[in-house]
Design a protein around this nucleic acid. Structure first.
Lengths: 139, 139
DNA sequence: ATTGACGTTTACGTAAACGTCAATATACTG
DNA sequence: CAGTATATTGACGTTTACGTAAACGTCAAT
């Protein structure tokens, strides 16, 4: 695995545009190093981006994602106040995640029910179709 | 439980503004009946809104939520083509939900790890604090 | 008769999260 | 060394999901 990445490598790997990646940097979610003008992304930058996208799939706003990303970094540094703040944030995020998990379970059950009713109805229609089809063929 | 609801009743119950509810109607996610000018929401309208908000908590865009809501309605009606379309949509939604579930599991594990390292570090700092505190008291 | 609570439509404003140029710089490639 | 590919910043546009304000109707209570 490579040590560093270009912006377009990351864009291709994760299916996002370079514009988006630069935008994330502008919003303080990434801070790659530079070689002259060009951005150079380390493995940890890549991991940060990966986590960022996971947050996006969960529907979190970028600002919230940034806070969570900072928990990863400074999770074992700093003063007690900072650590306790991080802990509170962890608990908040966990509550939100567990709410989402409940929502997902409920939604999945609903989908099951919809699908089975749908399939049953299709079976029934296909049975009808065969009958009338044969009737039409005989006519 | 009531048969019908006003717009502000629903707004209060779910903690959203009436403006938002009217906006959802504008975007075809709700279609309450009217008494003259006023909107009157049935129990099924209320359920629709509830499902809508669940979709929101999962970070889905309104247009996608609308499609899912329509699956609930027409899940057992219509032609085979429509039914099969619904079934495809069900599968798509299920895949998305399962991706989100995986993301949640991963995020929860990460949070656990962050929290425990955080707590360990706090314990350590507190132990230090006690020592130096006593030294200061003796001075 | 008016005040207040609730409702309505219409119109404009706004924050978030990018997309889409344009102009420019740098690097490799034949 | 011209051409192509890739990078940069900056400015402006766009979509989504509402907020906010204006201007008005309706009904009950004072």
């Amino acid at each position: 695995m490579q040590e560093t990445f270009t912006i377009s490598e990351l864009g291709n790997e994760f299916g996002i545009t370079t514009r988006a990646i630069r935008f994330y940097e502008d919003k303080q979610l990434l801070s790659p190093s530079r070689q002259g003008n060009r951005r150079v992304y380390s493995r940890s930058d890549r991991t940060r981006l990966k986590l960022l996208l996971r947050g996006k799939r969960l529907g979190w706003p970028l600002e919230e994602i940034r806070d969570v990303l900072n928990m990863y970094d400074q999770g074992h540094e700093g003063e007690i106040q900072q650590l306790e703040y991080t802990c509170r944030k962890v608990r908040e995020s966990r509550e939100q995640l567990e709410q989402q998990r409940r929502d997902i379970e409920a939604a999945l059950q609903d989908l099951d029910s919809i699908e089975s009713r749908c399939l049953a109805r299709i079976d029934l229609l296909i049975a009808d179709e065969k009958e009338t089809g044969q009737a039409e063929n005989r006519a």
